[in-house]
Computed example of a mutant assay.
Amino acid sequence: MSDSTLRFKVVRVFVLSGLLSVSAVTHAQYPTAQMGEAVPRDVREVYEKGLQFLVETQSDEGDWRGGQSGPAVTGLAVLAFLASGEDPNFGIYSGNIRRGLLSILRSQDAATGIYGGSMGHTSMYHHGFAMLAIAESYGAVDDSDLWRGSGQSSGEVRSELTLGRSLELAVRGAVTSQKKNRFGGWRYGPDATDADTSVSGAVMVGLLAARNAGIEVPDEAIDRGVAYFKSMTSPSGQVAYAGVGGFDDSIPRISIGTLVYAIARRKDMAEFKATLGSLTSRLEQPSSSSYLRYGQYYQAQALFQGDVEAWKKWNEQLIRELKADQGVDGGFSGGLGNSVDTSLSLLAMALNFRFLPIYER
């Protein structure tokens, strides 16, 4: 590891605690999970095949295309590589990570800080997941020469945009967007005045990851976001989508609510206990067939953060399902396009590794 990789500020040191110990990991040699249990063989094999699919389908520009595309898709794939435990600076996937990060940085609006500002009505989805990827990379990826050899034109000034600076701009963009929102959440566009729990969950997790990485995030922004989720959670633990009321048994939304409360450190709230109880009471109920992988992605994290014993039981079922569903090319399908569904599937399994700071309890 180069000296520049170790130039971290004190506020970033704790982010590295789970990563420095695996800097010498070699190809397909997964260490034991941080909680002391060996990573199941099926997880290692499925994960490796999935990563190879992402390697093969990444474009020369660093993004993934076909089906859904944009900085959210790229961010999820980058997270899948980071979560494997391979050294992000010198490991076999370091080039994939670097190209993916450059693609995300290029997508950021210099004025607003929004990733994927040109994506129209889905821009805040892209912003949330891209912000999460940059937050998890910050402190782990050496960005001192990130732009070197990137082929930027003489007029491109982005070579000065570090991961830390980009993340600060992204936080500012999210907070500015929230201030325009009467509900304290987020909707599809940064200027939206209404909100929904799906987009708001993506942005909240990105903000919380940025805060955990040492970036200043206003307490007011987190408090308003949590208050919005509280207003959308019923006493039974159901989480509405948008507007007023509309509660139903959506496992993805219940999982999003549980995760937001947990990583915002609000496990003392009645709403957290209600959503977690709703999840743990139906561990064997499958996720919705529409956007299947999206639901699994959030349910894995929610259970892990809320009740690790329940997660262990559910995780065994998940591994069996994903092993059976994986295509011969290593990819997954699930309604959002193979690149997205593959990344989401791998990240749902990545709790078995526990390498990403956002995946630590």
Rank of each mutant, 00 (worst) to 15 (best):
K267M: 06
Q238N: 14
S255N: 05
L283M: 05
V244N: 15
R265W: 05
L283W: 03
I254P: 06
K273W: 09
K267P: 07
S281T: 13
G246W: 01
P252W: 09
G243N: 07
G243K: 13
A242M: 13
K273M: 12
L283V: 14
T275W: 03
R253K: 15
S250W: 01
S236F: 07
D248N: 15
L259P: 05
R266K: 15
A264R: 04
G277I: 00
M269D: 15
T280N: 10
Y241S: 12
R265A: 14
V260K: 02
T258K: 04
K267C: 00
T280S: 09
L259Y: 11
F272H: 10
I254H: 05
F247D: 05
E271V: 08
F272K: 00
I254D: 00
G277M: 00
V260A: 02
F247A: 11
A264T: 10
G243S: 12
L276K: 04
A262N: 06
I256V: 14
F247T: 11
L279F: 08
I251P: 01
T275Y: 04
D249H: 11
P252G: 13
G243C: 12
A262Y: 08
Y261G: 06
G245E: 13
A242Y: 09
V260F: 01
R265F: 08
Q238P: 02
I256S: 02
L276N: 00
L279T: 05
G237F: 06
V239L: 10
R282I: 12
T275F: 02
I251N: 07
S236Y: 05
S236N: 13
S236T: 14
K273L: 10
A264E: 03
L279N: 02
F272P: 06
V260S: 01
A274E: 03
A264V: 09
G237V: 02
S281P: 05
S278L: 10
D249V: 13
V244K: 15
K273N: 13
V239E: 03
V244T: 15
F247Q: 07
D248H: 11
G237A: 01
A270P: 04
G245D: 07
G246D: 11
V239P: 04
A264I: 09
T280V: 06
A240R: 06
A264Y: 02
Y261K: 03
V239A: 09
G245A: 14
G245K: 03
G243V: 04
T280D: 02
I251E: 05
R253W: 09
Y261H: 11
Q238G: 14
K267A: 08
L279I: 00
I256A: 07
F247E: 01
R265E: 13
L283C: 10
D248A: 12
T275A: 04
S236L: 09
D248C: 06
G257S: 11
G246E: 08
T258W: 04
A264W: 04
F272A: 00
R265C: 12
M269C: 14
R253V: 14
R253D: 06
A242L: 12
S236W: 08
G237T: 00
V260Y: 01
A264S: 14
D249R: 15
V244A: 14
S250Y: 02
V244F: 03
L279C: 06
Q238Y: 11
V260D: 00
K267N: 07
G257Q: 04
A264Q: 08
G257K: 08
A240D: 07
Y261P: 00
E271M: 11
L279H: 06
S250E: 08
V239W: 03
F272D: 01
I263E: 06
